[in-house]
Amino acid sequence: MPRFTAENTILAKEIIGRYPLPKSALIPLLHLAQEQDGHVTEAAMEHIAELCGVTPAEVLGTCSFYEMFKLEPVGKYLINVCTNISCMLLGGEELLHHLEESLDIRPGSTTADGMFTLEDVECIAACTEAPCLTVNYRYFHQISHDEADKLLDDLRAGRRAHEVPVHGVLGKVRQQIPLERRAGAAVPGECETPVWLATSDATEGAGA
């Protein structure tokens, strides 16, 4: 099973360097692993444990707490239909049932062709746009049953590739911190009064 690629290992180390303590990079690195392999593999967790100086059990403990991390492979497209109250009031449940039929699977399972995984999820913060769903965390607001079926077809046909990357990819833009602009991680035990407070006439008072 895959660990980080050489390229991602470099990126992982750069990410770790942004944080005062390495363990803080656990979640970003788990996302990176999921981006690389589509789900979080055991080998990746072992690699992350090495990189962050914790045990694999600690990595699994964190990883398994968060529902976005998949320890088993999922479909290329993860469809999350919101059925929480605002969406329920405006047809979220019906939308879910419709998709269950269109895909012929129960929530929590993946189509035979490995294309789609369907999930019945809680509020996705689009309440005023109910009913709504996300595909690989891309939003589709106020979506009718027909539009939903059309979406499935497009995804199958690869017509939405530009909007909807494969599962595992979140933000397509990465934060870049140019070395010369970097202020650096504030490590506990290694910091004094910030200069701008020290030099301001309000040393003691400021923020205290």
């Binding site: 059990a57 600690e58 398994s64 707490f65 529902e67």
Partner: peptide, 10 residues
């Protein structure tokens, strides 16, 4: 000091 068992899932 050997964290080999842990809470898993939520």
């Amino acid at each position: 000091g050997d964290t080999l068992i842990h809470f898993i899932d939520r």
